[in-house]
């Protein structure tokens, strides 16, 4: 039973797992998971009984966090795209090099 559940956790990472990733491995999906987890925490705070200004300030903070995560999402997407582009470029260059090698060095023909 214990083993079974353990295995499941490994196969089925919850949204919290996004926090454990390396920033450079992050995907937009991870950013959405982070949003959900942070959102849930904020909801917990704002549904506690409060006095005075606290709810307004929590809400202000909440929308600043939305903005930060929007930025993170954009950065993650952008960097993934850049990596993708660089990889394609590299592969193209490799192919070119191989092609040229097959033709043999100039003058040897």
């Amino acid at each position: 039973m214990q083993a079974h559940q353990h295995r499941e956790e490994e196969e089925e990472p919850g949204p919290e797992n996004a926090f454990e990733k390396s920033p450079f491995q992050l995907t937009a999906e991870d950013v959405y998971d982070i949003s959900y987890v942070v959102g849930r925490e904020i909801l917990k705070i704002s549904s506690e009984p409060h006095q005075g200004e606290a709810p307004t300030r929590v809400a202000q903070l909440q929308f600043k966090i939305v903005r930060i995560l929007e930025m993170l999402e954009a950065l993650v997407n952008e960097s993934n795209l850049t990596v993708e582009e660089l990889k394609m470029e590299r592969d193209n260059l490799k192919k070119e090099v191989e092609g040229l090698r097959k033709e043999g060095p100039p003058g040897n023909a």
Partner: peptide
């Protein structure tokens, strides 16, 4: 249905 804003504020 999945995005920063809608995930943070369902």
């Amino acid at each position: 249905p999945r995005g920063v804003a809608v995930n943070l504020i369902p």
